[in-house]
Amino acid sequence: MSDKPQQRKLALVASKGTLDWAYPPFILASTAAAMGWEVGIFFTFYGLVLLKKDLNMKIDPASNPAMPMKMPFGPDGFKNIDWPMPNLLTSNVPGFQSVATSLMKKTFKSKGVATIGELREMCLDAGVHMVSCQMTQEVFGFKDEDFIDGIEHGGAATFLEFASDADVSLFV
């Protein structure tokens, strides 16, 4: 496998810190690493929380009005109902975000989707470079000890140099 002449390279920016948007960078990174690619993820702004030791992402149905609202339990007919959730409810009912988050986690699990923690672990095992944006880390007041071990620190120039010869670059 390693006798391939040129190793491909994936450069990702992870800028979102909600549970749903945590998936795309870790799915792409772990899969590219499994294909033998070199992978780097630059975590910036809200994406920084994906580096925290204690992962506690939530989803925000209010800002994603197209999000299907389905129940992860019960008979198929019940599970397939897409519950209408007006913004009045999703933005104003206390605890709605937590309930929606827990329902989405249950659905992911029952459908056979890996957790973010599992995917991140696989990325680390596969040697994916994880870079914290130093500027946003300081603006938001995150400390190094809040984050997992094995990450690097840098800024825009660090990402751009890594991405300059990448085969695929994506901003998530």
Binding site: S30, T31, G112, A114
Partner: peptide, 13 residues
Amino acid sequence: QGMLCPLPILKTK
């Protein structure tokens, strides 16, 4: 069986 993307690929690797 029962796993969704990207688990089958990651497990295969």
